[in-house]
Design a protein around this nucleic acid. Structure first.
Lengths: 212, 212
DNA sequence: TAGATTGTTAATCGATTAACAATC
DNA sequence: TAGATTGTTAATCGATTAACAATC
């Protein structure tokens, strides 16, 4: 893979945003753009745009700029969105359901192939296209479907035992909506945390301390 | 307010995490902790802990460490969690419902006082304690309840018109689950974005590029 | 060719870590 | 007092921005 040896997390976390803006430009039939113009739209510096993109290769052309469609595809490839990772959802409560129903997994590198619950009333019912299964079936299901990713949408206090089973089943990638510290427990995992209450607290702080 | 003149966003975004770990220690009846020990639990450096906390004041005691309960309350105060900002939810779909039902707003500095929808089938029904209202009532409701914060849980393409009304109604604080670029449109706003698909793409990238 | 804009190096800025004197 | 641990300054590290030569 080109020269993506050790890209900093700062750069990585900006990639989806580039991807979004480029996708939008692409939909608007814009076919080329300069770093200056893109920076303006995204409210960053042109230097940063060029520096970021050059971590992965020289996608532009001097005197011309970048081809929107091509650059978009490059970032898609860099992010690995053409992958087909096999993900399962743990917990079909309000959040789990929202995530399962609203996210376009196939465009984000994943297939959502299963969903597990402990609530007997939910087991056996459908969540969109997905059958809600008993957690008892977890191990056999993971083995059969070569599941590699788990989405945790259960409360912190319920995570420990199921996480242990998931980890034992070979799952090392987690999209974590709980407050359980997965990486603290298993260091050989890849974890992305979504901590909504942290985010809301940050909003609160900023509202309190707005300078204008 | 003590010396919080211009705290960097890096520090601010770490505050909720300190708050969470301290709350947990507090529940476990731990009553004091050193920066070294706290750093160990949180998987950061002791230097960072001391440096971060000292942005806001000297909460520790040499030779002793920090009082867990007291430090927790200090951070609570710094974050402004005792506030009672008046928030409304725009969009009672899966995500909006999950947010409304699962987050403990009162412990996070907010009251969720209203919820608005365009779907005629939902209007008039309940979302937990909350009545789902017609968007036609938006302006009168905001004026009456002195609403200062809006939570946007609607698709990007529907944001523009309602955002204009919210802004006109004086709402300048947004918790934004859509992909609409609010800060780009109105610069005098405080916006916290939750971009779940960005987060999932980042997970995908990291899974592709894991070094071990 | 002239104009535009990249890719890349160098300069700056900010954030993190290390060190240690102050002090409980 | 001796030991522990903070608060804070200084050193390091990394990320962002500026500048400009390369080149389309």
């Amino acid at each position: 893979m080109s020269k993506n040896d050790s890209i900093s997390m700062s750069v990585i976390r900006r990639l989806p945003r580039y991807y979004r803006f480029l996708s939008e430009l692409d939909e608007q039939r814009v076919d080329r753009i300069s770093s200056t113009k893109l920076a303006e739209i995204m409210n960053v510096t042109a230097s940063q745009v060029r520096q970021d993109l050059n971590c992965f290769g020289g996608f532009g052309q001097q005197g011309y700029g970048y081809s929107v469609g091509q650059l978009r595809l490059e970032i898609q490839r860099i992010l690995g969105l053409n992958n087909n990772y096999q993900a399962i959802l743990i917990g079909a409560g309000n959040f789990g359901s929202a995530v399962a129903l609203h996210l376009n997994f196939s465009k984000l590198g994943f297939s959502l192939v299963g969903c597990f619950e402990t609530d007997k009333n939910k087991i056996g019912t459908q969540l969109g296209e997905l059958l809600i299964r008993d957690e008892a079936e977890l191990e056999s299901f993971c083995a059969e479907h070569r599941v590699d990713t788990a989405i945790l949408c259960i409360p912190k206090q319920n995570v420990e035992p199921i996480l242990e089973r998931l980890y034992q089943a070979g799952i090392k990638n987690y999209w974590n909506f709980s407050h359980y510290d997965i990486a603290g427990k298993y260091s050989d995992t890849v974890v992305e945390n979504v901590h909504l209450s942290d985010n809301l607290m940050t909003l609160c702080y900023r509202m309190n301390n707005r300078s204008n």
